[in-house]
Write a protein that binds this DNA or RNA. Structure first.
Lengths: 221, 221
DNA sequence: GGCATCAGAAGTGTCGACACTTTAAACCTA
DNA sequence: TAGGTTTAAAGTGTCGACACTTCTGATGCC
């Protein structure tokens, strides 16, 4: 920490420390480290991350736009609470973006993609917890967004992903319902999706993804 | 300007000056005041807005997330260039969000909405320029996003709106093609959309909106 | 003239400081 | 003891400063 104004050296696209704080704080929030609605004070976070308030402020702005944190009229920052009614919004928005992405990904789909997703679905059968299952699920959906080839779809989708993850962690904490049955529903649904992506028409992929996400909404709720 | 650290007084949700700079700078960028790709230096902007660099920095972060500005590896900020290939992405994302929103708005639709949009379409017939026509067009689509009742759809849509507007202003500047024929295409298409929103099924509204936006993509391109 | 070199100007990343606001706690007072 | 009031602590918004990096254009060399 040498001199007070030391070491801005390795210049990465817009602020090193702010990005670090952003990613680390996001991980902490999504993983449920801070209870929903708890206050996030800049000086406290600054000390926690061994930095000054400036990078913390930048990180908070980014997190606010990701929907993980909200600013009050007084300027205070709190971890955003995500309730059942928010999940409806999130899943509708996911359905919109992901169904479009599925149609686009269908055109770019290769055998390598099929193999990757097939492995993912196989892993879902051997899963030990709901948390592990949802991680695989999100990975799968993330891959479809990537393969759509539309960077804006992916960018818009990302905040929804974090909000969804934060919500899942929350309900897993509240009700440790480990009565998961991946084989009864999730896995067949994903197999159907993979088939539409790999060997269906774009319109079919779109349709299957739309139904898949909207069905998950009723489940998550 | 009294003392150096004066007047943070009327506290609005997270920084007054930063919000002001954000909105004003966005307007300037969207209206084509800064050429695409031109550099935005924090000290220069700070002087322009009679403030220090801190609020300017916050505004730039927000604009980056809106896709109007981009940060280089060196930390420099430039007005983002939006080319034809970006428009494909933007319109696909718009189609995804707006078609979903149309289906939802259909359920909430009232006679007041119909009257408002009908007036908008009538105004399109008496328009004097392409710029005026696109303003009405964006207003119309914005209203559908609002009436979807899904705040996240609206939030995700907003950046696309600004990017689209910036693109339109740019091509209007390049080619002053005032050979617009609203009656031949835009207006009938909007009337069909209104009918689906007001008296069709949600699925129909979704479908009509999807086709409407994707058709506009080929036109804008 | 064309091209490398190298000062100086301009710009970014981060820090600590301070005015003012909001929150929390201590302290009365009935 | 409950409720209001005052006071201290904590927090936010903004500023200017400074180390370091990147850009720019003037200079010198071939």
């Amino acid at each position: 920490m040498a001199s007070p104004h030391a070491n801005p050296s390795p210049r990465a696209s817009r602020s090193n420390r702010a990005t670090t704080v952003h990613l680390r704080l996001r991980k902490e929030i999504v993983s449920g480290h801070y209870p929903q609605g708890s206050a996030l004070a800049e000086p406290v976070l600054a000390e926690h991350f061994h930095t000054s308030r400036a990078p913390v402020r930048e990180a908070l702005i980014a997190l606010e736009r990701e929907g993980l944190v909200s600013f009050e009229k007084t300027g205070r920052t709190r971890v955003r609470t995500i309730e059942a009614k928010d999940i409806r919004e999130i899943m509708e928005a996911r359905a919109a973006l992901e169904s479009m992405a599925a149609g686009l990904a269908n055109r770019n789909w290769t055998a390598a993609d099929t193999a990757l997703i097939a492995r993912n679905i196989d892993a879902q059968a051997n899963v030990q917890s709901l948390a592990e299952l949802s991680r695989l699920d999100i990975d799968l959906h993330h891959h479809v967004m990537l393969r759509s080839g539309n960077t804006r779809l992916l960018q818009l989708w990302e905040p929804l992903r974090w909000q969804y993850e934060a919500y899942l962690v929350e309900i897993f904490k509240r009700q440790a319902k480990e009565d998961y049955r991946p084989e009864t529903d999730t896995i067949p649904s994903h197999r159907k999706l993979l088939k539409a992506l790999s060997s269906g028409t774009p319109a079919e992929a779109t349709q299957v993804m739309m139904e898949h996400v909207l069905f998950n909404m009723t489940w998550a709720n």
